[in-house]
Nucleic acid binder design. Sequence first.
DNA 1: TCTGGGGTCCTAGGACCC
DNA 2: TCTGGGGTCCTAGGACCC
Length: 396
Amino acid sequence: MDAFYASVELLRFPQLQGMPVVIGAHHDSRADALRAQGLATAQIPVEDFARLRDYVGRGVITTATYAARAFGVGSAMGMMKAARLCPDAILLPVDFAEYRRYSRRFKEVILSIAPQMEDRGVDEVYIDFTAVPGGQEEGGRVLAQRLQQAILDATGLTCSIGVAPNKLVAKMASEFNKPRGISIVHVDDLEACIWPLACRKINGIGPKADAKLQGHGIHTIGELAARPREWLVEHFGKAYGAWLHEAAWGRDERPVVTESEPVSMSRETTFDRDLHAVRDRAELGHIFTDLCTRVAEDLQRKGYVGKTIGIKLRYDDFKTATRDHTLPLPTQDAAEIRRVAGLCLKRVPLDKRLRLLGVRVGALVKEADWAAQQALGLPPASHRARGTDPYTAPLF
DNA sequence: TCTGGGGTCCTAGGACCC
DNA sequence: TCTGGGGTCCTAGGACCC
């Protein structure tokens, strides 16, 4: 989806059309108050929206309209930097509930046309064109146009589509003509379309791998493709090195995965100011309990139980620590999660000030499956003899 | 100018089992 | 006197993605 969060906000506040607008991840703003008043958007003059320069916060930009991007503002950018680049940009707070509603709607539209769809988050999917009527016409362009139009009709939102022989190349192709773009990349186009691109454009090469590649003088995908596989394996490890080589040559055999189960659920929060474990004990305790409660609610609402309870801390120097503990039986109970997370908290250094606290429940199982398993009286996998007294434990 | 929140997957060492 | 091999699970950290 094109500038997804920002585009959803523009549907709500059409008077901001064409203006630089950014969505901030962590702040309070006037738009919240305006929404709370339930005012018709036509009644809200542009002057009433908060400007980026008026806000001093520790958040990041999640999305920027194309007008804001022209100033160099982009997602994941700190708000301070964004404010220097484009001080007059309108700042709106994130409204995840609203974006999720639109996310469900555009995915329903896609599923009604092309049922083989892989969910890749709130604003992105992979679609298998293979068996869809029209999926092969004009290299996929006919179906891509039909999808764009159906999504636009149902939601008022635009998207960009890349069509290619595999997910790796399709993902890159989808970026070529944003917004409202359609790009079709064939196997023969590799050298012309893919090899000139920066390595960072490959989904799976992040800032660390890119820096290391640059250190070896590799900047483009073509330069990556020119390195022998053995050389890449030597410098980047067996699995990642081999994958780099395949990716550079546009090879990817991953299927479109239409079903998946969650592995973990978590809640975390960055504080408005850094907190000290001793001096701000009461406030931290409150936040901690709240996070546990919210994770438990998420588990209950979605029908999952989990046996690995974990915490995450981020210190004022941005270093992160995690601790977790696996229970013999899975849970979705807030008090139990709070108890075990509390034990985890005791195992982590608390001398430095904290900027973030998080609570996670992993090793998830569907609540219904767990209940059925219990009814059958099957012992949980984690109940096999472990940690027994070495002197009395049976030998073989 | 310091850097959100919610995820997945991988690696590596150690415990433990047979 | 110099200590196997193969497997799973747990834990901590980190890279990466949307």
